[in-house]
Design a protein around this nucleic acid. Structure first.
Lengths: 201, 201
DNA sequence: CCGCCATGTCAACAAATGATGACTTAGCTG
DNA sequence: CAGCTAAGTCATCATTTGTTGACATGGCGG
């Protein structure tokens, strides 16, 4: 945004536009984001967006492509239920994602009815559920029955819900919960969902 | 909408407008809903909305006021953790809310940045969390420590997440999950959150 | 039957917003 | 330095959408 090395530097300007757009898309959704505001954030003329991204939809797709998925990041895939719970705690803690302001999954969820984005969004959530299953020791989809997949998706839904609730309300203490505070309850949930207490004969 | 008894009947027309608006607000959010579409749904002129609700914001607030809260409905407040889990299973099952199409909580979450709606939304979610606490045997807020409140809010977030994920994606098997299928996992989650397995000394 | 008033329609305005082509300027290259 | 091209600006258009005042009309009370 305030990059000094951006004097008639196309790549840097394009990048700045992308970041400004991503920030607004995450906070305000597709409809709520105006191209004029994005251009103003960067201090550049509206028409440049057309040059670099063709249209608002092009800008949105580029922003989506440049945003990490739900359980994706660089943390690597958690190998067991405990590290999965820890990864969730960190992803859902208050200070996480300082570069986005909100949880990046919100951008996907606030998208317009575009077909390609819909597919991307569904895939991202399914991927997350599969990662949960992997952490539970199931390497392939067919390895798990529908009930287990449903349980994994419920865990993903919990993550989505936390992100949504935090961004939409000031609900305390959830709003400011740290990873440390989330850790204990989330461990309980993960364990209960993926390793039910009394289910084996 | 297709009420035959609606020939120059102000009350019925007003009600039809309210229902059409509610449906669109829930599915498409505040920004995504246009007054022209709402009027067209009812088969009435756009200007009538101004007459009955003053403005789009007035229409939205009326729709919010006429929509049940999260754990509110008429089911009554669940008295223990098991009936709480069952109530959740039913509220979050695929066929629930036939009169809205989606879970009504989505209307609150997709609201514009209006101050009063923000407050309403926060209050609705807090109420839901308090109901969860009540089901856990805590009659007042002060009765519970922050950790327990956080756990209750996580359960509410799970509900919100399920509603959001279902409305935004075709994620299976969550999308079509019945109350029966949700029951077992949700019981595990509720128990784990509200009655942690190994916490007492 | 007739007029009145609630009910509803019509046409038009203004603001916001995405899209677009013509124009300008800075910085490199020869 | 001259000039060409990429980078950026400007003014404007078309569309959508909320808002609004003037107008039409149907049913009910007298």
């Amino acid at each position: 945004m305030t990059d000094v090395t951006r004097r008639r530097n196309a790549a840097a300007t394009r990048q700045a536009l992308l970041e400004a757009a991503r920030d607004r898309f995450i906070r305000l959704g597709y409809e709520g984001t105006t191209l004029r505001d994005v251009a103003a954030d960067v201090g550049v003329n509206l028409a440049l967006i057309k040059r670099y991204f063709s249209s608002k939809e092009g800008l949105f797709k580029a922003a989506v492509a440049a945003t990490p998925r739900f359980l994706g990041r660089d943390d690597g895939i958690p190998g067991d239920v405990h590290s999965l719970a820890d990864a969730l705690s960190h992803q859902l803690s208050a200070g996480a994602w300082p570069e986005f302001g909100e949880h990046p999954v919100l951008m996907l969820l606030r998208a317009a009815g575009d077909e390609r984005v819909d597919a991307l969004r569904g895939q991202a959530l399914l991927d997350a559920a599969l990662q949960v299953l992997a952490a539970a020791g199931h390497s392939s989809v067919d390895d798990a029955d529908d009930d287990l997949l449903l349980r994994a998706e419920l865990l993903v839904a919990l993550g989505v819900g936390v992100a949504v609730v935090r961004s939409a309300t000031g609900l305390q203490p959830l709003r400011d919960a740290t990873a440390g505070q989330l850790s204990s309850p989330l461990r309980d949930v993960v364990t209960a969902l993926i390793e039910p207490p009394t289910n084996a004969p």
